[in-house]
Design a protein around this nucleic acid. Sequence first.
DNA 1: AAAAATAAAGAATATTTATTCACAAAACAC
DNA 2: GTGTTTTGTGAATAAATATTCTTTATTTTT
Lengths: 158, 158
Amino acid sequence: MNDRRTRLVQIKKIIRESHVSSQEQLLKLLDENGISVTQATLSRDLKMLNVSKISNEKEGYHYHLPSEKEEKEAEKYLVEDIARGFLSIEFSGNLAILKTLPGHANTVAIALDKLEGLPIIGTIAGDDAILIVLKENEREETVIDALVKRIPDLEHEL
Amino acid sequence: MNDRRTRLVQIKKIIRESHVSSQEQLLKLLDENGISVTQATLSRDLKMLNVSKISNEKEGYHYHLPSEKEEKEAEKYLVEDIARGFLSIEFSGNLAILKTLPGHANTVAIALDKLEGLPIIGTIAGDDAILIVLKENEREETVIDALVKRIPDLEHEL
DNA sequence: AAAAATAAAGAATATTTATTCACAAAACAC
DNA sequence: GTGTTTTGTGAATAAATATTCTTTATTTTT
């Protein structure tokens, strides 16, 4: 059933190499590569890949992959935001309180929300503290691990 | 008649500050700011601004401005591509031949085409030379001026 | 100043894209 | 195993967006 993986790879390749301007067109190009799906599926795929459609003087509308650089850059800023404001974190059951420098709570909370792969379901920020709700059945250790993995600077403080 | 300018500024501001997910929504936000147009016009505005629509895990679809950085970066690469390959340029009427390092013609030609504001209508690249067709009534001086303005590194060579 | 060219924009429409609904295959629980 | 949930998909449709066609205003040319 998992043609999706390979299809996503193909889609990226095609978008990278040709100037695709609609899902119909992409459909045909995929078809030529022996992959046949409907436009609905492509719409979902493009959403999943965070592909964007953009216009460009010379070339008209076309799809655009989020560049590695963009992705990494974006994440780098998030990580910096967290590291800059972080003071401490303490757990209690499926909750944690993360203390930050005054005024940093909001920034850090937003960054935590955006950073993917953390075992948390959400945050509520005050001014210098954030309430973090862990995912069902997650505990202190996994959260700390995930944080350290993503934000190396935190290692000393945890 | 030139509400367009001010409208474009407003649109950028709104897109930068709020999470807009459709032109209808943008329409309303503009309306609240006393600017009233139709969706058709917004579509053209967004095309003109090179705004892209992108999906994002957390926030769903939203518009995205090309960042200053992206714009400048993009242009920087073009400029570099040209400077790296450039050897000489010679004019004859409304034509010019630009000589490049072997194999660089294509890269340079693409960059010339993409770089906006040059008084040329097109290029044809071989391996180490490019035929450039100037715009009607443009001459050597204006092209050189435009090139030097955009590609400071070329000043010595021209 | 008239005539011609250009630029902006709305209304209607064509095109494109996202979503809803239904269903089937796979993974999971027991 | 059977029942349940999750995942992926297409068909149909809704929603969103781009374009065509037309009109009006503005600038340019003569």
